[in-house]
């Protein structure tokens, strides 16, 4: 089963909407609660990153079968210059405005890593970012 959602850039009011819809779908499919919880955390962080950093928004694609959940979050934003550095807890390039809301503490990517069985990040400066989160059921 495949689902697609749009993520608007800069619109924090709607941040989490796609994650909420995916969570709802996983619940309806009777996926194990623990797996729903970790998947929700991982994709929420990916969604917030698109809202906070991408220009032109992005897309969330969820592909679910009996064995695994694959969620791809892709945007055409500025990209990540140094992925290992971005993975370090506490590293952030968020704006002061985003930080004042309690986001941008440099915990997003580490949260994704902790809550994904497999995490792939494909990105380059001015090339956008594609994050693929896989959780096995």
């Amino acid at each position: 089963m495949k689902f697609e959602f749009d993520i608007a850039d800069g619109d924090f009011a709607k941040a989490g909407t796609s994650s909420s819809q995916v969570k709802h779908i996983l619940k309806q499919l009777n996926v194990d609660t623990k797996i729903i919880k970790k998947t929700t955390v991982a994709i929420y962080e990916a969604e917030v990153n698109v809202v906070a950093h991408a220009v032109g928004g992005g897309k969330l694609l969820a592909d679910i079968n009996l064995e695994r959940i694959v969620v791809e979050v892709a945007d055409l934003g500025p990209g990540i210059a140094d992925i290992p550095q971005a993975m370090v807890e506490g590293f952030s390039t968020a704006s002061p405005e985003v930080i004042s809301m309690g986001f941008g503490a440099g915990m997003g990517l580490p949260n994704m890593r902790k809550n994904a069985d497999k995490l792939e990040i494909i990105s380059g400066v001015d090339e956008g970012t594609r994050v693929v989160i896989t959780n096995y059921i």
Partner: peptide, 11 residues
Amino acid sequence: DLLSDVMGSTD
């Protein structure tokens, strides 16, 4: 007050 902290640490 850090949202990702709450996301990652609460149940």
